[in-house]
Amino acid sequence: MKVLITQKVSDNLAFRDSAEAFFHEIETLPDQSITIDFSGVKFISRSFAHEYLARKKQSSKTLKETHVPESVRKMFHVVLHPSKKFELPKPTVRRIDRIDAVFT
């Protein structure tokens, strides 16, 4: 069975809970083996990609992807091979007790 993800979600795969909802629907389908067609996807966020891959790992179905745009492949790769989280340099701390101090 083939499922077009742009039809079920959007061509803009932005939000984490959209991926969650998508998989709720996938799990209700009668077929055990499902192909997720990524034709027409214009954008995928890191959050959506992370949720998609996490849910895919837990799914009871056998899932594969087809027509995956390069931007989606790259985002999947980023999620599957995360770097150490970026840390800002240690900040200087300043207390501001009156607004006018900000403009002097």
């Binding site: 800002l88 900040p91 200087t92 701390v93 300043r94 207390r95 007790d97 009156r98 607004i99």
Partner: peptide, 18 residues
């Protein structure tokens, strides 16, 4: 508040109306 750019990173403790 937290402000970050390439030159510096600062935190501000904001009182009252800020």
């Amino acid at each position: 508040a937290l402000s970050a750019n390439r030159e510096k990173t600062e935190e501000y403790v904001l009182d009252g109306s800020l």
